[in-house]
């Protein structure tokens, strides 16, 4: 990062949503198949109990969140990371909103499979 001063901490990339380019089709499609998803409050209980999350850097809540904000999931490793989901259903049991997260996981996987194939595994 030539030309930039090192202040001893890192800065995040911008978090605004670029409304001109945001593509929320994935979120819309998912909301159609898993309607209860709209009740998600991003509490993070799912990620906290997730055994796959402890094994590899996979955060289920963050994935939801990114999809909802139409952030480009395919540029991250997310679809590829999702192949570590054990479908154990613990997230579903702890979810305070009773969202069928296991099905959501399957659906995200199905709809983003083409990304997972081009991205090398972690």
């Amino acid at each position: 990062m030539a030309g930039k001063k090192n202040f001893g901490f890192e800065r995040h990339a911008g978090r605004q949503i670029d409304l001109d380019h945001a593509d929320n089709s994935l979120a819309t499609e998912l909301a159609e198949v898993v309607s209860a998803w709209s009740a998600c409050i991003s509490c993070g209980s799912c990620a906290a109990t997730c055994p796959a999350g402890q094994n590899v850097g996979f955060n289920f809540r963050r994935l939801h969140y990114k999809i909802k904000l139409s952030l480009e999931v395919e540029t991250d490793n997310y679809p590829s990371l999702l192949t570590s989901c054990l479908l154990c259903g613990k997230c579903q049991l702890v979810c305070p909103r009773g969202i069928p997260t296991r099905y959501l996981s399957i659906q995200i996987m199905q709809k983003t499979k083409h990304y997972a194939e081009v991205i090398p595994p972690v």
Partner: peptide, 13 residues
């Protein structure tokens, strides 16, 4: 149910 090889990147500890 289509096999998308989910779970195949987890390591069991």
């Amino acid at each position: 149910r289509t096999d998308m090889a989910m779970g195949s990147k987890s390591t069991i500890i």
